[in-house]
């Protein structure tokens, strides 16, 4: 990788943190996916520089690292909002009216799927089945799952997250 080997412009702190993650998985036979999951967990997303750094540290071609990072829907190469809203778009939720839920989220936040609010608070995504089909329509905010949604309930939940910026909604 001569021509395209740009020295990553990562801060030393970021670089160290990535080293720590890689160290943790050094005994695994093929830990790329776990490392990417972990690095994203720390930084919220995977920047180009991070991917290049990981590829060099693991001696895996950048193309392969990038290929994996963009294949899986839960890995992101773009920064995201503080709270990630994932509306379930699977069939049982569809039958129970998930479109109306999605529209309620869009109306409330003024963003479309894949977008982030200008204040960086919310990112809206859809997700595959969350497995709580019996209480559909459902959505997930960060790691928390909400079921039996109505337009009204969606508004309440989002307003709670917007108000409580530290995300300790219970």
């Amino acid at each position: 990788m001569n021509a395209c080997s740009t020295a990553p412009t990562l801060s030393t702190e970021t670089d160290k943190q990535i080293d720590r993650v890689i160290e943790e998985y050094k005994d695994e036979p093929s830990p790329l996916l776990e490392i990417l999951n972990e690095v994203q967990h720390i930084f919220g997303y995977l920047s180009d520089d991070m991917l290049i750094a990981i590829s060099e540290k693991l001696s895996i071609p950048t193309s392969q690292v990038y290929g994996v990072a963009t294949f899986y829907s839960l890995l992101s190469t773009r920064p995201k909002g503080k709270h990630i809203i994932r509306v379930c778009e699977s069939a049982p939720c569809h039958v129970m009216g998930s479109e109306s839920v999605l529209r309620a989220v869009k109306d409330e936040l003024g963003i479309d799927l894949g977008e982030t609010t200008p204040d960086g608070l919310f990112t809206l995504e859809s997700t595959s089945c969350l497995g709580i089909c019996s209480v559909g329509p459902a959505m997930m905010v960060n790691d928390r799952v909400f079921g039996n949604l109505t337009r009204e309930k969606v508004r309440l939940i989002l307003r709670r997250y917007a108000k409580d910026k530290e995300a300790s909604v219970s």
Binding site: S90, A91, P92, S128, G131, I132, C133, S134
Partner: peptide, 11 residues
């Protein structure tokens, strides 16, 4: 890796 929408017995 229970992915079928509507199936949640494995979970």
């Amino acid at each position: 890796d229970e992915g079928d929408p509507g199936a949640f017995m494995d979970r």
